[in-house]
Amino acid sequence: MEREELIDKYLQSELTPAEKDQFDNLIENDTTFRKEVEFLKDLNIVAGAEDRDGLRNSLASFEEKITANETKVVPLFNYKKLLVAASILLVVAIGGITFLKPFGVDTNQLYAENFEPYKNVVTPIVRGEDTTNKETIAFTSYESKNYELAAEQFGNLYETTKSAYFLLYQANSLLASNKTKEAIPLLEQHISLEGQLSERGKWYLSLAYLKENRKKEAINLLEEMSKTGSFKNSDVLKLLSQLK
């Protein structure tokens, strides 16, 4: 494999095990190759800096290495052009516009940072209690993190009782089981019923939208929640600031 292609796949985290062995061997034994990799990693840092100060610092370090002739650029690249591009990136970032990061945020990462299954506030579980109550059995499954079983049990409970909160817990069980697409319509239905826990449903629906990269819909829902401030207000405002 060509060295340039090998480096590109490394920067994209796409190396196969065999390519990784080849890459590691070159890094260890080929000084020129190692410097090429270090140079392009520096450029990636410049392009991916998340704040203005970090971007300035990354660019300064990047320029110092070029000035000191500490880097050698792969043949496919011209470092002067890259430096111009990095400088343009700095100007754009200072202007408040995201460049080279068209989506601005990693919605999957934000979902992972914010999601945790909603606590059981409906049916307290008394450990060791012998019961055949279906609601207690479902919440026991839920608290035991047997989410797939809990989702099925909550679904059956909603069908027989039409109690809206069962939709919320069924959807949470599905989210915890990485079944986001199945959870979304349940949360939408839960919110439409305007039950006591509907604000909770909006929070989890906004997170589900993020998981599915439906950023605009997530923002709309979070903005709606921010007006009432009735549930997770600080988390809602923080998430909004990260998305805009």
Score class of each variant (00 low, 15 high):
Leu76Ala: 12
Glu143Ser: 06
Leu187Asn: 02
Ala49Gln: 09
Ile97Asn: 12
Val84Tyr: 08
Leu55Ala: 11
Trp203Ser: 01
Leu100Thr: 09
Leu197Arg: 02
Ser177Glu: 03
Lys227Gly: 13
Ala49Asp: 01
Asn25Phe: 13
Val91Phe: 08
Val73Asp: 04
Val236Leu: 09
Glu199Leu: 06
Arg56Ser: 12
Pro117Lys: 07
Ala68Arg: 09
Phe99Asn: 00
Leu168Phe: 07
Thr107Tyr: 07
Asn178Trp: 06
Lys35Cys: 09
Asn172Ile: 04
Ile125Lys: 03
Ala49Val: 02
Lys80Ser: 05
Glu217Pro: 04
Arg127Ala: 15
Lys41Arg: 15
Ala171Trp: 02
Leu26Cys: 08
Asp30His: 04
Asn108Tyr: 12
Ala176Asn: 08
Ser163Leu: 06
Leu6Glu: 08
Glu2His: 13
Leu43Val: 11
Ile94Arg: 00
Phe77Ile: 07
Ile27Thr: 11
Gly195Asp: 09
Asp53Asn: 10
Tyr147Ile: 03
Asp42Pro: 00
Asn25Tyr: 14
Tyr204Ala: 04
Thr16Gln: 07
Glu148Phe: 05
Tyr111Glu: 09
Lys9Gln: 14
Lys181Gly: 06
Gly229Ala: 15
Ser61Phe: 15
Asn108Ala: 13
Phe23Ala: 09
Ala60Tyr: 12
Ser87Thr: 05
Thr31Val: 14
Glu212Val: 05
Pro124Tyr: 07
Ala164Val: 04
Glu28Trp: 12
Phe99Trp: 10
Thr131Gln: 06
Phe77Thr: 02
Lys65Arg: 15
Asp53Cys: 08
Leu243Ser: 08
Ala60His: 15
Glu199His: 02
Asp8Leu: 15
Asn220Ser: 14
Glu116Asp: 10
Tyr169Val: 01
Phe166Cys: 02
Thr136Gly: 00
Ala18Phe: 08
Ala49His: 00
Lys41Asp: 11
Ile88Asn: 09
Glu14Asn: 14
Leu76Asn: 09
Gln196Arg: 08
Gln12Ser: 15
Lys101Glu: 10
Leu11Phe: 09
Gly229Thr: 13
Ser206Ile: 01
Arg127Asn: 11
Gly104His: 05
Tyr165Gln: 06
Phe77Glu: 01
Arg127Thr: 13
Tyr169Trp: 02
Ser226Gln: 14
Gln196Asp: 11
Ala93Glu: 03
Leu26Asp: 08
Asn44Phe: 06
Ala47Asp: 04
Phe139Tyr: 08
Thr16Glu: 14
Ser198Trp: 00
Ser87Asn: 12
Tyr118Lys: 10
Pro17Thr: 10
Leu187Gly: 01
Val91Leu: 05
Arg52Met: 09
